[in-house]
Amino acid sequence: MSRLMILLAVTVAVLFAASLAIGPAAAPVGRSLSALFVDDNGPLSMVMREIRLPRALLGLMIGISLGMAGAGMQGYLRNPLADPGLIGVSGSAALGAVIAIHTGLSAAFVLGLPLMALAGALGGVFLVMLLAGPQGGSQTLILAGIAISSLSAALSSLVLNLSPNPFAANEIVFWMMGSLADRSMTHVWLALPLMAAGWALLASLPRGLDALTLGEDAAEALGINLTRLRLKLVIGTAACVGAATAVAGAIGFVGLVVPHILRPYVASRPGPLIWASALGGAAMVLAADIVVRLILPTQDLKLGVLTAIVGAPLFLHLIYKTRRAGV
């Protein structure tokens, strides 16, 4: 168990360093890493500090967010096919971003888009909580999430449909694919406080999720407050996945696939899986972001496209395994 965490942490550290070392400004690894810490008053330090560092940091932070939220959602719903997007966060964040692009707000100032996306995410989750009610079981939460997701998708299509200029439509489509390219430290500072709050909330869930293995009734009798657990899960997910979508667009399959792959290595316990998935998610997003830069360096392959291309077959494999196990 702890050996798994060490292995994952080392993997994340190596991938983080690799992410810092890769880019079009071809410089030796040692020199570029030292330029990060010691200002050389030249272009390399600027590239490292202004371009590569925020990109690597965002990859790390978004990976942690998606992994933790995915493991939390699967643990709460006791369903290995649940995904953090299930409660409508990603969809409503995308709607906010689409509106920002359409209205020209994103062009007017740098944080216009991420702020609108955040507003969308928070609004969406507020509606989901309103629909699902303060108590209620997991079913109502799923239904409310699906309702809000579909509504945001419909409204996003409407905005696209009515988009007067083809460039805006183009920009919207590319934004929705998800990417870490051309992000700055401003994006990091915007996302970090929200994500940290989300991580703190999700980090308080493990024991309750373990207890939920026995069902809602037994968990409550074990002293777990399910209403509070659900509130922490939903707000935590909204904060960190909302922030992730706001700064990077929709990056799918990470929250779904990572917990599923790591589950056997934590003896299927949903609590420890949250920690493992945090690191696993970071590793997956950092690795995917390295791959998009390596295989098509000139074409700006979108990160979300790659995670979907890798994630979908893995997902099929999981379905096959689930079917064979007869669950």
Partner: peptide, 19 residues
């Protein structure tokens, strides 16, 4: 309460393949 009384519900739910 959880230290005073244990509860075994009728539905025998085991959500994950734990040992």
């Amino acid at each position: 309460r959880a230290r005073r009384a244990a509860w075994m519900p009728q539905s025998h739910e085991i959500a994950w393949p734990v040992d």
